[in-house]
């Protein structure tokens, strides 16, 4: 019977929640204020977004997503999920290396993925704050190799991170420029 309930729940989600086009110009997403000129992004209803994070997509969440992780307080996981205890948590004394690993572990859990390559971790200034940028690859349970670009910082003890991810083949490069511009120019209050 629970199967029937599951299907009905899915239908309700699908039926009621709609994707919305993201307007050009300045947009407030979580704590972030971001600017986009490209009319390519759709905001994903929370029922469809991984970890219930505010998320945008160009071609559908199986193909690309830009997720905004904002205002994460000491002791909290990065995502809103029912099995919270299985997710690693943020601590406000974390250095960028530790945050980079936290993000990767969260992605590994959320997408049931194996981290296949950890690329560069570099300093990046976000909204005038010292932060970091990270690139890595992971293999999801559908055997697709995906690449992620992450930009983030800790402000007033709270973690603020944006994650862009897409299949390494075609989709990552296609919109990486837009995503990166948006991330590096993001503003925080």
């Amino acid at each position: 019977m629970s199967r029937v309930v599951f299907i009905l729940a899915l239908l309700l989600l699908t039926g009621c929640e709609q994707y919305q086009q993201v307007k050009s110009g300045r947009n407030e997403v979580g704590s972030f204020s971001v600017t986009t000129e490209a009319p390519i992004w759709n905001s994903v209803p929370s029922g469809h977004s991984p970890g219930s994070l505010p998320t945008w997509t160009v071609d559908g969440v199986t193909l690309n997503s830009l997720s905004f992780v904002s205002g994460i307080k000491d002791g909290s996981p990065l995502v809103t999920v029912h099995d919270k205890s299985k997710y690693p948590v943020f601590h406000s004394d974390m250095l960028p290396n530790e945050i980079a690993e936290l993000v990767q572990s969260t992605v590994a859990r959320l997408f049931t993925a194996t981290i296949s390559r950890t690329g560069e971790l570099k300093p990046l200034t976000i909204s005038g704050q010292p932060g970091f940028e990270l690139e890595f690859e992971f293999v999801t349970d559908d055997e697709v190799i995906r690449r992620a670009f992450v930009g983030g910082t800790v402000k007033n003890g709270e973690l603020q991170v944006v994650v862009f991810q897409a299949p390494r083949m075609h989709y990552f490069e296609k919109d990486f420029g837009h995503a990166r511009d948006l991330i590096v120019s993001a503003k925080l209050p």
């Binding site: 899915l10 699908t14 469809h48 969440v61 199986t62 993925a113 999801t140 349970d141």
Partner: peptide
């Protein structure tokens, strides 16, 4: 997961 969403929505 990402694949799961695809399959669920396929349904």
């Amino acid at each position: 997961g990402i694949g799961g969403i695809g399959r669920a929505l396929m349904l």
